[in-house]
Amino acid sequence: MKQLRIKAILILACCLIWQGVYWTGMYSPLIFPSLGTIVHALGRDFVEGALIEQFIYSMRLVIEGLLLSIVLGLGIALIARSSSVFRSGIDLLISLAHPLPGVALLPLVILWAGIGEGAVLFIIVHSVLWPFLVSLFGALDRLPQTQQEVADNYEIFGWRRLIWVDLPGSFPGFLSGVKIGWSRAWRALISAEMIFGATSGSGGIGWYLFQKRVFMDTAGLFAGLVVIMVIGILIEGIFFRWIEKRTVIRWGMER
């Protein structure tokens, strides 16, 4: 509870500082709008605009992209454990692909995935998969030796080994990989939507932000950012915390 109170006070302080800067008039209101205009824009776009739809649409894409990456990541991890050649290949692929922002690969993306939802998903998966694999491999590589020997002792190999022993054992790393993936997915989604626009219906939050920017509705832009920040806090503070309580905390496996 104390943590919560501290956070609330910090947020309040930020709001005050923001409004203070606005009042000094140092910056043009087009760069630094008042809290009032931001809140007004937020309300207007929720009620009159398609902000809710857009938020749900983006959320759906992020979850799809994240799930897809996790499944791919687990599959790759399974194969990599049985074949060191494959593992070396994947390590190479990771070090080549990881530093590249998805948006830099635009021509390739368009070639392989088109210009619709598929392309956005592609960019999301590209931004999530590599750091997720790094976390996952890191955790799988660092499993306690004794634990591995117990699994050898009971003659558990292959798929069963991964699911019964290795994944639960590396769960803290797996979970932090997912958390990182979650924020990477959002960043990727927003930059992808800025290019690919409304890939369905009225598009998503990235498209919303982009339109605000090009039509110079800065208050609306900040309103969109507020939405994203709130989502981030809720998911991390509530959803991931809930998962942690039931897993790594219950098992005494926090790092």
Partner: peptide, 22 residues
């Protein structure tokens, strides 16, 4: 308005000439 894809001219051109979705 909801069918727009934002691309710089060179990117748009290569996407067009790739002969795929765009």
């Amino acid at each position: 308005d909801q069918q727009l894809v934002t691309m710089k001219h060179p990117d748009g051109m290569s996407a067009m000439l790739a002969g795929q979705e765009l």
